[in-house]
């Protein structure tokens, strides 16, 4: 199995608070990897380190090595903007650009990169919206504001926006935490479909969700990685006592 992301001894801080204390793991291509753990265990910080979004918070600091497709993304020659362009990210709450239409929201990433050809844009928008399973719901109102959609639709719009620039990795930071159960289900189905083409890393506080959709699961606690294995193993025969306590609901 090809390893797309290789993380080696990554430490991260917010000011003087250390949120990651030496994380090492490898993430497989075209698989869904879930990061679980209680609040404050560093799972969001970790995923934000993967596309260099962690450092945009004032006072934040990262140490260690992360290789993506064999490129060290923290090497001094690498521009964080280029890293972020190649890696899609979906946030906890849907964040479509409020002043843009549905169409422009999806096209925004392409336009940033200088794609102005109407035909190319139109095709890319349709393709991305189809992949995000939103096309049928919005095809007749592409000129409406992105804010006119429901929360679940907004989140799928954000997924479409991330997909439009054709990344090969998709990071999802608790993408369903602000959604109702039905919208959550749609997102989960979507993740299943998307893994054919993308490597997906998803942070979730919902263990059932991790069990349902992921191939691999990493359990984080207090900034450390406690256990990392095939999802089935984590949930059926965890090796570490703390993992077992967590998945059986004894803390967190």
């Amino acid at each position: 199995m090809e390893k797309v992301i290789q993380v080696n001894d990554v430490k991260a801080w917010y000011g003087s608070l250390q949120t990651l204390k030496g994380i090492s793991l490898e993430i497989s291509k075209n698989r869904v990897t879930a990061i679980i753990g209680p609040s404050g265990c560093g799972k969001s910080t970790f995923i934000r380190c993967l596309n260099r979004m962690h450092e945009v918070v004032p006072g934040a600091k990262v140490e260690g090595k992360i290789l993506i497709n064999k490129t060290d993304i923290y090497s001094t020659q690498v521009d964080p903007v280029e890293i972020r362009r190649r890696i899609g990210m979906v946030f906890q709450k849907p964040n479509p650009f409020p002043t843009m239409t549905i169409y422009n929201n999806v096209a925004s990433g392409l336009k940033l990169n200088g794609v102005n050809n109407k035909k190319v844009l139109g095709e890319a928008v349709e393709k991305s919206l189809r992949r995000a399973a939103l096309w049928d719901e919005v095809k007749d109102r592409l000129n409406h504001s992105g804010m006119s959609l429901s929360g679940g639709q907004q989140q799928r719009l954000c997924i479409a926006r991330a997909l439009a620039v054709e990344p090969d990795i998709l990071l999802m930071d608790e993408p369903a935490s602000a959604l109702d159960p039905i919208s959550t289900l749609r997102i989960e189905e979507l993740v299943q479909e998307l893994k054919q083409q993308y490597t997906i890393v998803i942070v979730t506080h919902n263990m059932q969700q991790a069990a349902r959709i992921s191939d691999y699961t990493a359990f984080f606690l207090n900034g450390e990685i406690i256990e990392y294995d095939i999802t089935e193993n984590i949930f059926t025969k965890p090796k570490d006592k703390r993992t077992e306590d967590y998945i059986t609901g004894r803390f967190g």
């Binding site: 940033l112 990169n113 200088g114 054709e166």
Partner: peptide, 16 residues
């Protein structure tokens, strides 16, 4: 790296 990606890379210089 896809074709689109390499096209972006060229454009990136002027954006920067």
């Amino acid at each position: 790296m896809s074709e689109l990606q390499s096209q972006y890379a060229k454009r990136y210089k002027s954006r920067k």
